[in-house]
Design a protein around this nucleic acid. Structure first.
Lengths: 199, 199
DNA sequence: CAACTTCTTGACAGGTCGTTCAAGAAGTCA
DNA sequence: TGACTTCTTGAACGACCTGTCAAGAAGTTG
């Protein structure tokens, strides 16, 4: 049963991806529907018809953000030795190629930004970010467990605790780098953390 | 030269402190002037007359927050051995007594929240949070330098890098704990970090 | 072709927001 | 007391915001 009626004049996935960029750099509250209409070249009614209200639109963007990130994370950590890959993941927020806004400053992690702005008073947002954090620690814990077994990573601490620490590190780094992107200091801190994990 | 005219009917400092609480738990955008009027029992005109506009009011609250925190930090780290005191500082965001909103969830660090919501598009906010981060790392660096000299903390890494790492850790912890306050996991991660610092 | 369905457009409604202001209240000072 | 200064009060303003909707446009189907 093919869809009948007038076809959409824009690509839904691509529009969501571009909305994600906007939400990411400006935040939820500071991004108005009018901003989206202007940036996406899609009229209000079409946005509402396609994505529902603003909150749903935003949460869909956050979900998309996390899905992409999780795929990247899983793929990157499926390797040995682990520590170089881990270092790569941690330095992600301070690299300028992928995570930069037009003013030349990284805009952090969208999940973290959502945590600051919508959690805990928005329960659906809380659920999304909580699940994202859990998945991060699960994926990293698995990788660390393998690396401990291989003798690459110290077993002075449990992999769960190490993974939780790395979650805090990457979130803190993402946040602080919005204000104060000192790449040298950031890389030195990351290297310190990586070295502390070495067996 | 004594001030003439009708005296203020409320305490300025105390009102700012209570506004800080509100801004802290709800964020800048989600706290309306009406919310402040209701919570502080001070009419709009008086707030504007005393504190200027909303943004100035908020930034003053952030400055107050940081001043209090910095005094606490400096005093707490002026001790030996350092690591127990450092552990105390790091666990601060997950303790419920001082940093909890009415729904029983910590609301993070106001400086970090400001970073997520107002940085980088508000230059004055950016300046405040950047300075706060710098002061944190300066204070912690000094303490670590002393503790390295005393043989308590490892000198495998430079104290600057260790301090930067601790900044990321405490900011990440504050943020993530808003969504997912697993005290056991948080404490295990903190202990892992502290042990990695031990000589 | 005509009937039908869906998408697009942009004006509009209704609410909330930050901010201002004029009039009255409550002090100080001479 | 009267002049002066500052604070308080709450109504009002204009801007902006999210969300809706009716009319037209553009496809599909038979």
């Amino acid at each position: 049963m093919a869809r009948t009626g007038r076809p959409r004049g824009f690509d839904k996935d691509q529009t969501l991806a571009r909305a994600l960029e906007l939400f990411w750099s400006r935040g939820y509250g500071a991004t108005s529907i009018q901003d989206l209409v202007d940036a996406l070249a899609v009229e209000r009614g079409s946005l509402y018809g396609t994505f529902g209200d603003k909150r749903r639109f935003y949460l869909d963007a956050v979900r998309l953000y996390w899905d992409v990130y999780e795929r990247h994370l899983t793929a990157a950590l499926d390797t040995s030795p682990l520590l170089p890959a881990l270092r790569e993941i941690l330095t992600h927020p301070v690299r300028l190629d992928e995570l930069i806004s037009d003013v030349g400053v990284p805009h952090g992690c969208l999940v973290g930004n959502t945590t600051a702005e919508l959690v805990p008073h928005d329960s659906e947002a809380t659920e999304i970010v909580t699940r994202s954090y859990r998945r991060f620690t699960d994926i990293v814990t698995d990788a660390l467990r393998r690396a401990q077994a291989a003798g690459e990573v110290t077993d002075d601490a449990r992999p769960e605790a190490q993974a939780q620490l790395l979650l805090y590190l990457v979130q803190g780094l993402s946040l602080v780098s919005r204000a104060d992107l000192d790449r040298t200091a950031a890389l030195a801190a990351i290297d310190t953390a990586i070295e502390a994990l070495r067996a």
